[in-house]
Design a binder for these strands. Structure first.
Lengths: 147, 147
DNA sequence: TTGTATTAAGACAAGATGGTCTTAAATAAG
DNA sequence: CTTATTTAAGACCATCTTGTCTTAATACAA
């Protein structure tokens, strides 16, 4: 799996918040219920987003989490880095530290090409784009399978 | 991490074998020692390659593992699939089962583009190419850090 | 046939990730 | 001020991945 489950949950939740199109705080238990994610686990994941400055949180009645800035200024890249770190966009395919032009691994050139494509797309894909998509017909945001 | 450690070890070892350029069986303990990988762990990883038909194994003195076919006919794609499965090349970024044209996730289009690039490069990159690279100057195959 | 070298198989431990639960802190409303 | 609602923090457990070790099976060589 390319993204960790934490990262996937975080992205799903953030798209959900953005898709609400309001500036209100959204309660995490509501997000968790709607997206079929464990509430406590999601709470911890979203804390990472608030620490990263992507979300704001507020306690008490009418509390919850909200976007810290307009959804057009939050990229997929930002979200992935906030949880899984930027290793995905910087690391060598074979995990060799310091793999680069001077001391490459055998797959360096090929992997650099793939990574560049991924980075480019992740940076240009905004939360606004994802939220718009999420609101269109037949688009699913989460795994709602009844087990 | 995109690839599991098992997969990385397997790829490193297979490049090492191919880079020897002989048709002899190479003992796994020698590979493990050269690449700084746990011997017993590598043994199990390479078993997956023999089960997948990428390597041949032979027991006893002068035994070891060898390529099951010419290195030009083994792709990076083959090696990744043999250990991490083809999910990497088929799965949705958000892990949603059945994410496709009919019922996409919000990131479907973007991810499909990245995945296609990765698949294309992984399929056209052969073990022969990697082994040639591995034999050139300043190219490192494994993490030889002394801990 | 006996000994040695090698992979195969599987038990087991350690560590990371995913998931649950309880308690504390903050905030709004009555 | 009290109560209800919500996030924060952290203990704890389950599962998966990684790594270690022991024993078995196979094959060569003396």
């Amino acid at each position: 799996m390319v993204l960790s489950k934490s990262c996937i949950y975080g992205i799903q939740a953030t798209i959900y918040i953005a898709a609400q199109n309001g500036n209100d705080y959204v309660a995490i238990n509501r997000i968790a219920e709607q997206l079929n994610i464990s509430f406590h686990f999601l709470t911890k994941v979203l804390q990472q987003f608030t620490e990263a400055g992507i979300l704001l949180s507020y306690r008490g009645p009418k509390g919850g989490v909200a976007l810290a800035r307009p959804s057009a200024h939050i990229s997929l890249y930002d979200m992935i880095c906030a949880i899984d770190g930027e290793e995905l966009f910087t690391q060598c395919m074979l995990g060799l530290p310091g793999c680069g032009h001077a001391e490459p691994c055998p797959a360096h050139d090929q992997w650099t090409e793939v990574r560049a494509k991924f980075t480019q797309i992740a940076k240009k894909t905004t939360l606004a784009m994802l939220a718009t998509k999420a609101n269109s017909l037949n688009v699913r945001l989460a795994n709602l399978a009844s087990k």
